[in-house]
Each structure stands twice: as C-alpha cells, then as structure tokens.
Design a protein around this nucleic acid. Structure first.
Lengths: 372, 372
DNA sequence: AAATACATTGTGTGCGAACACGCAAACTGT
DNA sequence: ACAGTTTGCGTGTTCGCACACAATGTATTT
C-alpha cells in the first residue's frame, strides 16, 4: 500500500506539534478508498456519484479539513479571466485617477492568476458616453465587471442584461442594490459625515456657525452628498450641540464669478463662521478663495487626496481631508471579482473601506500605499 | 517547429491589444534554441552554461520580459518554511495581543504556500524570559524569524548568531539597525509625535498648557517615547506656538496611589491645562483618573486600540487614538519573510505603517480590518 | 445468454517551475 | 592514444488540481 512519506515527515519535535502540509485530494481518495477522480466529482458536483460514496467522501473531506490548494488550482486551470472596469475618465474629474491606479495595481498583482483587466472610460458628465462604454463592455463579453454606476437610470438595463447573462458585477463609489450586484465596495457616507462633524466640533470648542458646502458641477452624486450632510447634522444633534448654527450652500465651480459672489455673501452675513465642511473633493476651491480673501481663521474639512487638495493641506489651509480610499476601492473591487471567479471564495456583498483622517503630518502614509 | 497556440490566442480585438499570458521558461528556451534546463541554469546560476548561450538567454529573458510564475514555483518546490515569531506575551501587556493576531492571520493566509509559523512568547518585563525564548527559537532552527526586540542588549548576541547561520530576521515595533536585519516594520515615532501635536493644537485653538505623559512600568521602550516627545515638541516649535506651555511627567501605574497623587499635583499647579498627550498605550489610565475626578474639559490623545482605550474613546473621554497598526505590523512582518523566502522578492528594509487617526466615529473600520 | 444501455468509478495528462539525473562532447594527463 | 574528468546541455519527474477520457460494473432488453 502506498503511503506518502510526508505524512510522517513533519511530526513532533520536542513535543511541539508542527502542522503538517495541507491535505490533498489524493489523501482523501486514499482514505475513502476511491480514486481522485471521484473525490473531484464530489467536490465539484460534476458527473454522477452514488449516494453512499458521496456521503462517505464528504464525511472524510470534513474530517480531514480539506482545503484546496489555490495555487495548484489556478496553475492547472490556466484560464484567462477577462475583467472589464467601467469608470469615469479622470480627464473630466481628477477624483477618478485614484480608482484607476488601484485597478491597475490589482491588474498587475493578479496577472499571474491569469487575470486581465480592460478599462472602459466614460465622461462622468455625459449619460450617452456612459451608455456607449457600457455597451462596449457588454459586447466584449467579460468574465466580470467592476463599475462606478454613477448614472442610476441608465445603468439599470445593463444590470439586467448582465444578470441574465450571468456576468458578475461589482460596484464601487455608488451603491445601488437593484439586481443584486456581487458586491459593493465603498465608503459609508453617513458615517463620514458624522466623522466630519466630530472633527469640526473638536476644532471649534466655542460654538459658532458651520457651513456645509456642496461643490459639484452636477447633482449626479447627490445621494452621497445628502447622506454626508445628514450624518454631519446628526452629529451635532446627537451631541446636543444646539449652539452651533449649521448653514448650507450649493456651489457651482463652472461659473467662477457666481461662486465667489455666493461665498462673499455667506462670509459677510455670517461673521461667526468658523469652519467649512466640503462634501465633495473640491475643498481646494474654497481654500483658494479663502487664500485670496486672506481669511485665515476659517477651518476647512474636505474629502480626497487630490493634488490640489494636498497643496492646501500642506499649507495648512485645509485642516483635514477624509480619505475615502478611492485607490483601495478600485483595488479591492477587482480583488472581489477575482476572489469570486478565480478562487471561488465567498465574497462579502458589502465592503466599507476605512475613513482615514489625513492631515499634513500623516499624509505620506496614504499616498503611496499599496492599495491595501 | 512547435509553437504554442496561446501565442496567437489572445491577440487584437477591435484594435485593443489584450495582454497575452505570461512568458514561460519554455518560451524563452524556444526562442533561444536551448532547453528549459539551460534557461533554468541561467536564471538560478545553477550548473554551468557557456558564455555565449548565457548571454543570449539573458538577452532574451530581458526582451521577453520574463517573470516567473510564483505559484508554479511555490507549488513545485513544495518546501515547508518554518518561521518563528518571538514576541511578548499579551498576558503581561495587552498591547501585544494585536501583533499576535496579525501574525496568526498571516499564518493562515500563507499556509497554502507551505508556511508554518510558530510563536514564542516571552515576558516583556523579564530579560531572562526573553533570552530563554530566543534560545528556543535558535534551537528550532527556523527558516526565518520575526521579533519585537525590546531588549536591546540581550538581543544582539542572537542577531549575530542568526546572521552567522544566515537565518533572516525581521524586526517590528522596535528598530535596531545592528547586524542589518532583513527588514523593519513599524511606525515612525517622531512623526507620530508631530501628528499628536497637530491634533492637540487643532483642538486647542487658545493657547494653554499641554501635558506629555509617559506611562509605562519600565523604560525599556524609552527610545520610542523620547522620539514621540521630540516630534511633539517640534510641532509646537516649528509652528511658532510659543504661547503653549509643554510640561511633562513620567507615571508609574504599578503604584496607584503615587500615580493619582502626581496627577493631582499637576492638575492643581496647572490650571490652564487643556490637553494630555499619552505616549504609550495606557491613555485609559488617565481617562479613568479624570473620570473619577469629574474633570471633563481636558482632552486626551493616546495610542493604540486596546479595549480599555476604546471604552473611553466611545465615552468621548479620549478624543483620538493614534493607531500604530500593531496587527498590521505582525501581519506584514511575516509577509516580508515570506516574500523573501518563498517568493524571492526584494523586500524593503524599512516599512512604515500608516499612522491612523482613530476616533469614535471611524473606529469600526480599524477594528476588524484584514490586517492590511 | 448475449447484447445493449447507462450508472459509476479509475486513469492519464497538462499547467510552469525546480531540480535531479544523465549523456555526449571537449578536455586533461600520462 | 586512451581512460578519466570536466564542461555544456537535454530529459524526466514532481508538486495539487482540473478535466477529458477510459474502464469498469450493474441492470435491462432481446
């Protein structure tokens, strides 16, 4: 009778049990007195196996605590997985540069597993552009899709189509629960609003006015922003900080004159304004304005590590940036697809990434992180 | 002539170049008109190869941009790597629980690569205990070692020994550059002091007194603490905040009476004390003290997500905790060893982990993170 | 009783790299 | 000149898994 030598190889040394190598299909076959082919059939519900044998094999698999060797699996199957990433072009909004790099990093890391990521970029301000690229994605018939579904109405037909064709898709940045996606990767907007509230409250011990500024050229992300606002307001409510006055504005960067004018109006009419919470990644616009007006006492909290934001962060014009980890969103999004497709693991349908508080002093650690 | 079909398989679709699968040794052999064995010899400087062939193969390797398939490599070699982790027992100091879990997570993740991690725990307050466990590590003759070298003098002979025996070792938590370790994983203490300075300054816009509290039963970590203090002080210096008075104390928890008495003395003699920076993971002791004395206006900044700290963080008695990512230190430490031993990658000799600013509102994301 | 159908189980090959082995040609020395 | 050594290179097996294919066995039919 054949017995693998390794079974004996890694036994006790000085009473300390050394984990032996993992159980293989072969070991199970041996113990169950069947061939590896049969074990394989049981494991993958492939072909037919008699009740009796199946039950026995399953029992032994459980007993021996079998876990497949993922490397051997990936090596053997040698399949190429083609993934599509459908994201906005960062030429239109620099925010989208980070997810792109995360996706690219994931692509590099996973290349050895036969993963191939193709990007499809669309104009975040044009629904037609989105539809056009989404069609291309569909036509390319990928094995999985990662996308930032910022056009709710327009994306739904694609979801339906992908679901019918059984192509798994992972969302990031914007959460949509229709047609149950494989997974959503992103930030908890409400909670990040709370966090911003905490930071502002901490930096402003004496009550005063606080401005919430929504700066975006479109309202396509409105759901996000409103959740942030809600979280922010609730922080002050829950902590009974009713001496703080919260005011709010919606600004449009495309018209610089009106942008400035509106801010002028607010500053003038709110002498006790001490902090501004910018719900989008455009805090630098406020910082620039304050710099021009030589106003130094107003603190800014914003989002995302865009170069323009970092410029003002390093000048201490922006106090904190909340990092929504956009690079990580791209990175983990691809990883979720691969976990599902290649490694056949169960993937959580919701993955919130950390809300990092970034300031001048700890910035460097968040810049070139490995996407992890 | 034999040509692999895959070379032609993944070519252009609609003008988009699809990355083909990775180059294999076989492909190189084919192009260089030698056998795979020869390519292998060139790659590993194993056996002898004529100048001419060697140069040609090297050229083609570079040309084709060959990258070995790590999975195939690990699968084939089938070696068991035994790693030793030499860390303090968290029974003596709960701080060490997190690194332990990180090490364990890494062990689980890497088990499939034939990695086996054995822990050796020592009493962080006993040099003898450390020596004893370090000896056990040496005797077990591991393939690699991860350790928190908190006893400087005592660890040096072991470093020498391991270096002689060519056992790579990675340090975390405490940086020691003698006998050049493979890598150091940890935090930048100076920078974290700066960060604490920023936070306290932000929360205390009106000048006042600030207390630096070193709380530890031993001074074994003193180098750390001093660097933190230095960074902290330099924040105030560099920003010309000379209206802030920085005072300092060293407290000892083992004697509760004197601990309380010293704090009483400071509080009394410093009426404008507004913030306390605790350089160790024992901020909860200060929080408890302030709670007992019903003092609410003094803000605390501390380190590390110990359960006791979290208790006071959630009660808003501690404003912020700087997370030194102890779990990540363990996790990445093991990973460095594996990258070096198993995957034969180059590993950075210094890896600083992010200094996360943790508050009640973003705590949850740092608690059950995957160690990444 | 032989032929056929179908249910069940076993065997063999390939994935990419590592490495042991082996064999021929080119040297070496006496 | 011939045995022995060194040099230079090719072959074959292994790792664990997936999957195609081959080979059993059992039941039903003619």
């Amino acid at each position: 009778m054949y017995i693998d030598t390794f079974v004996f190889k890694y036994i006790l040394t000085a009473g300390i049990y050394m984990d032996k190598k993992n159980v293989r299909i072969k070991d199970i076959a041996l113990k169950a007195k069947v061939s590896t082919g049969t074990v394989d059939r049981v494991l993958h519900n492939r072909g037919r196996v008699s009740e009796k044998v199946r039950d026995n094999v399953l029992k032994i698999i459980a007993e021996m605590n079998y876990e497949p060797n993922l490397m051997a699996r990936a090596l053997g199957s040698n399949k190429v997985y083609r993934l599509a990433a459908l994201i906005p072009d960062h030429g239109f909004d620099p925010y989208w540069y980070a997810p792109k790099t995360g996706i690219e990093k994931a692509g590099r890391d996973l290349k050895q597993y036969g993963v191939n990521v193709q990007q499809y970029l669309f104009n975040p301000y044009s629904a037609e552009s989105f539809i056009e690229q989404a069609k291309l994605v569909s036509e390319s018939n990928p094995d999985g899709i990662l996308l930032a579904p910022i056009f709710y109405r327009e994306v739904l037909p694609f979801f339906k189509q992908w679901k019918d064709r059984e192509i798994p898709f992972v969302l990031f940045n914007t959460q949509i629960i229709d047609f149950d996606p494989l997974s959503y990767i992103g930030q908890d907007s409400y909670q990040s609003g709370m966090l911003a509230g905490k930071l502002i409250h901490f930096g402003q011990s004496h009550p005063g006015s606080v401005l919430i500024a929504h700066i975006d050229e479109e309202i396509s992300n409105a759901a996000h922003l409103l959740k942030k606002e809600q979280g922010f307001r609730n922080y002050f409510l829950q902590n009974n900080l009713d001496l703080y006055t919260i005011i709010k504005t919606e600004l449009n960067r495309s018209n610089f004159a009106s942008f400035t004018k509106e801010l002028d109006r607010i500053i003038e009419s709110t002498p006790d304004l001490a902090s501004i919470f910018v719900t989008t990644s455009k805090a630098f616009d406020i910082a620039k304005y304050l710099e021009q007006r030589v106003i130094k006492h107003i603190k800014i909290i914003g989002y995302d590590l865009l170069p323009q934001n970092l410029y003002y962060l390093n000048k201490d014009r922006i106090s904190f940036l909340i990092n929504q980890n956009p690079k990580g969103q791209g990175y983990w999004g691809i990883n979720q697809l691969v976990d599902f497709l290649v490694f056949k693991k169960a993937v959580p349908e919701l993955k919130y990434l950390p809300l990092d508080i970034v300031t001048k002093e700890n910035l460097s650690y968040y810049l070139d992180e490995d996407g992890a």
